[in-house]
Design a protein around this nucleic acid. Sequence first.
DNA 1: GATTCATGGTTACCTCTTGTAACTGACCCC
DNA 2: GGGGTCAGTTACAAGAGGTAACCATGAATC
Lengths: 138, 138
Amino acid sequence: MEEGTSKEPSHSCCTEDAFQWDTREDCDVRQILDRIGDKWSLLVIALLDNRSMRFTEVKKTIDGISQRMLTVTLRQLERDGLVSRTVHPVVPPRVDYELTPLGVTLHATIQSLVTWTESHQSEIASARARYDAEVLSS
Amino acid sequence: MEEGTSKEPSHSCCTEDAFQWDTREDCDVRQILDRIGDKWSLLVIALLDNRSMRFTEVKKTIDGISQRMLTVTLRQLERDGLVSRTVHPVVPPRVDYELTPLGVTLHATIQSLVTWTESHQSEIASARARYDAEVLSS
DNA sequence: GATTCATGGTTACCTCTTGTAACTGACCCC
DNA sequence: GGGGTCAGTTACAAGAGGTAACCATGAATC
């Protein structure tokens, strides 16, 4: 029953002070960032823009994702209220996923990350080449 | 020597077309997004704002990161040209990390992710509570 | 009327990434 | 000369993720 060491999310760690948000691992903000800062979640939200997509459609578009991880990722996003899941009772089954209004607001921010990546990929590529060359010569 | 199945990053997969950027796993943009969409990288870049920080300072601030993962993360960010590493030849050793100009431009975008998280954490918390209640009652 | 196919999963297993904890090396202080 | 500091590295254990096989349903095919 000790409160100091319990794992429940704290309510007071996220003030308006800068750099308070990431001081505690069980902080709400940290838990949400861990979800967003996830390879597959990021890609799924970036992909689901203004339209609903079927399970297999998403799976085919996001190269390299396994069926299991797509299921898990979509369930997490559904739980977080970012994606809605619609099951059509037909055979073969048809399940549509689309961004919720909340998910749409996040999509905008994530899209700017993608845009940043697109416009700076050459800088990063040359930085990597430079670094690798230095490491080899040392 | 076959080119089609090689692992080298492709140069033509990232056009201005929407949703071309994530179709291939070995695409530059995907590789960079995988780095950014990483729990620890995200937190480190968000933390390093306008100031240089020592290794242990970062380690103490980001709760839960292990020494090994901080080393690995910082090396990756250095390789990508997002963070600069300065070793002072003193004893005990002193190593400072700070954002490069390129890293600063990314910081702005990531900061907006953090801000989004902060302002929507209650919505996500209630969505999770709603989802968990539904799952339990089914 | 048995057989095959498609979709959207789930499960068992195995690998690869990450966490844990102990060790290092150089010097300073006591 | 023993312990302390900092910024790592290393060996090993634990956990996350990938792989591939399986399932349920019904429609279309043979």
